[in-house]
Amino acid sequence: MCRPRAEKRRRRLINLRQESTATPAIEVSHLTVSYGPTPALLDVSVTIAKGTLVGVIGPNGSGKSTLIKSILGFLKPDFGTVRIFGQPADEAKGRVAYVPQRGSVDWDFPITVREVAMMGRYGHIPWWRDATREDRRIADEALDMVRMGDFRERQIGQLSGGQQQRVFMARAMAQGAEILLLDEPFAGVDAATERAILDVLDRTKAAGRTLVVVHHDLATAAEYFDALVLLKQRLYAYGPPEAVLEPELLSEVYEGKLRGFTELVKRGRGG
């Protein structure tokens, strides 16, 4: 197999990133996670500095969502560790917010837009107390920020795809977490919503937060992100977009299913 070459490249790219000295926001080391006999993630190590906007790319089933869920501390690794600002993941509760992949949400659940945004505050409300007016204000502000203020009382199934996406963005905002993980926020949204979401991401980044975004469109990956993680069970590459979006590497990971894509990538890189 072609593993040795990937291994070599991997090491080279990682070296590019190890210069930052401050405590990294996310430190994933030798992470192995499995649902069944074969691991979904195998020996993945990634260090993400504070204030960066990192994209995660890879084919379907490559373990992107698994990586997100492990950083959140939802999945227990078979091996390896996840550290959030130097702390073990299960002690950093609430410091990481997340926007789920569309397909994993029960859109028929009896819950309104505002209640979803309020969930962002749950980590701040002790279990014996009710939500305060302050909590409600923060949740409402977050909804206004993504321009969903007019839809507060709607059940979440009765929104368009882009609106649904923005509601979950608002929830993540209301949580006030330093790290945001987004699982395919751009899937199935029109160009205008994509712009709007990107604006929110940029503002969040400008506020010094760290963002990890699962992304499918290789054509825009270079434009949107500071660094890219290329996954397929293992970590194939991690580094600046130009280094990761090499046609040779991509066709190895996507197994040649990418003929049209490589064209796109060239354009994305301004070629």
Binding site: F74, Y98, V105, F109, M119, Y122, G123, I125
Partner: peptide, 16 residues
């Protein structure tokens, strides 16, 4: 709240 969140989004529930 806990019952609601774990029913709706167990991943987020675990993360907070």
């Amino acid at each position: 709240r806990q019952l609601q969140l774990t029913s709706f989004d167990p991943v987020m529930a675990a993360s907070i």
